[in-house]
């Protein structure tokens, strides 16, 4: 067992050199490479984590967006349904109103037609009745309907109450035109004379009298002095007849409306 101190010193130097060389060529490069690799892996891991977090955030955002879209879609659908319901209700209301208006127009038209028909019927029936009555009077009683009418008219003038008579007198004094007598049947000269006389006696002694025929009167006489009119006719009887006819036409189901009864 011997120690060569020179060799010892040399070995110490050798060892220190080896430490330096290995530090230079082995430990430092290896540790640096490992550290860099770990750092890179760490970076990539953190990047992956960040990317994952980003993706999760994106997914969350998309979920929220989808939810918002869903809710807005439901809201829009609800609004659309509401609008459709409103529109339908409005259209139905419009149609109902239009139908009601048409029905009203139709009813008015029908009423008018009915009135017109009744009017014509009354006219025809009235004339027919008068014709029959005139024939009956002529054939069986030897009397004339015109003269009967004239007689009745003169009687009625004579029986006029004071107020009505005053109105007629007043109208005659202001009238520039002659008094007008309308009758449903042609009056013979005798009847005309009687009527003129009655007018002159009761209303105005010097008023001129004109005679006209008016089929609308059916049976009766109408005296017009200025703005005053006095009428005697069979209209009241004919009105009753018309009422009866109306009831027959409508089966008694429709009430009469807007019809002013004729005076007699």
């Amino acid at each position: 067992m011997q120690i060569d101190w020179l060799t010892v010193v040399a070995q110490i130097v050798n060892f220190l050199v080896l430490v330096w060389l290995l530090q230079r060529f082995l430990y430092r490069p290896i540790i640096t490479a490992m550290a860099r690799r770990e750092e890179r892996i760490e970076t990539r891991l953190s990047e992956a984590k960040a990317a994952r977090a980003e993706v999760e955030a994106e997914a969350e955002r998309l979920r929220d967006q989808q939810q918002a879209l869903q809710s807005s879609r439901e809201e829009m659908l609800r609004e659309a349904r509401q609008e459709a319901a409103d529109l339908r209700a409005r259209l139905e209301g419009d149609i109902r109103e239009e139908m009601e208006a048409r029905r009203k127009t139709w009813r008015t038209h029908l009423q008018d037609e009915q009135d017109d028909f009744a009017n014509r019927l009354r006219q025809r029936v009235g004339h027919q009745v008068i014709d029959i009555v005139g024939r009956v009077l002529r054939d069986y009683a030897g009397s004339d309907l015109a003269s009967e009418v004239a007689g009745t008219f003169t009687d009625r003038i004579a029986e006029l109450d004071a107020k009505a008579r005053d109105k007629l007198v007043d109208a005659a004094s202001r009238a520039a035109a002659p008094a007008r007598v309308d009758s449903s049947v042609a009056l013979d000269p005798d009847a005309r004379t009687r009527i003129s006389r009655a007018i002159h006696d009761s209303i105005a002694p010097d008023i001129e009298v004109e005679y006209h025929e008016d089929n609308a009167l059916i049976l009766g006489v109408r005296l017009t002095v200025g703005e005053q009119t006095v009428e005697w006719s069979a209209a009241r009887f004919l009105h009753r007849l018309e009422t009866t006819l109306d009831e027959v036409i409508e089966g008694g189901s429709r009430p009469r409306s807007g019809r002013a009864p004729a005076t007699g």
Binding site: N14, V17, L18, L21, L22, F25, L26, P29, I30, A33, R36, R37, R40
Partner: peptide, 18 residues
């Protein structure tokens, strides 16, 4: 020493960090 240093150098000269 030569073996250790040259061996280390041969490897670490082409170190991969990938």
């Amino acid at each position: 020493m030569a073996l250790l240093v040259l061996g280390s150098w041969a490897v670490t000269a082409r170190l991969s960090e990938g």
